[in-house]
Amino acid sequence: MLMTDVLRHVWPKRRGIEHYMLLMGIVIVICLTIMALLAPIIAPYDPIKTYVGKPYTPPCTEHLFGTDRMGRDVFSRILWGARSALAVASLAVVIAAAIGIPLGLLSGYIGGPIDRILSLIMDSIYAFPSLIMALAVAAALNPGGATSITSAMINTSLAISVVYIPSYFRVVRATVLSVRENLYVKAAQALGADVLTILTKYVAPNSLAPAIPIISMNFADAILTASGLSFLGVGLPPYFPDWGVDLATGWRDLPNGAWWMSFFPGLMIFLATLAFMMIGDALNELLNPRRGMK
């Protein structure tokens, strides 16, 4: 399929609600990315530095989103927080896809005992409550806290990715099961192509489309899970600018009437999740082959 055809299909002349969901999601994601990239330039204060303002200052012109209990600027922390949120989520999704998709391809195409064992493992991971699973993996990877921010981020991503591997595995495997029955796969075999060629040139390109919506939905979920892990103390360290961490710490000051400390991080998590969900849902709808794509 040509890229232009995909475009024409995803963005035709006659549009439905899915098309606008997709557009909105993409716009939000682009804004978030710009925020993350330009954080060092646009952030008015150092996000980690304490007492840049009076603690518990409500939103005002000097501190757009107010300050927290240690006098750090919430607006600056939100901007920097976009970095860790996007980095952790993308890393988690990439790792999960990089492991889940090839395993799904192999398992579906080869079948037999390998398929059964892999499916069993994947199903048991899938059956486990996801946050608890991630919590367990994160705790195992971060015994007594990570040594650096980078390793904390990588460990958090790894912990989250474990939970997502089965969803890629399952959806790709299921597609391969039908794709491999296609005549063009038989034709390739009759031409003398070996298994690797058949997998990479004939099976994989026709089996990956259903994984695309999952990527964006996982993205949304990963931001939430990462926040949850930080909230529970096994993710990023508390001083680090991260929406989840800030939500967790700011939440404790809610009874004091300092709503802005938890409201803005919460809003950002909500917006980012919503954006990826919209993209995922829209793609799921638009890439559905039953939607009259010839």
């Binding site: 005549l183 063009y184 038989k186 034709a187 390739a188 031409l191 390109p205 026709n206």
Partner: peptide
């Protein structure tokens, strides 16, 4: 030895 299948819509890799 080569084979030509019945359904040309299914026997060519769409990609």
């Amino acid at each position: 030895v080569q084979i030509i299948f019945q359904d040309p819509y299914a026997s060519l890799n769409p990609r």
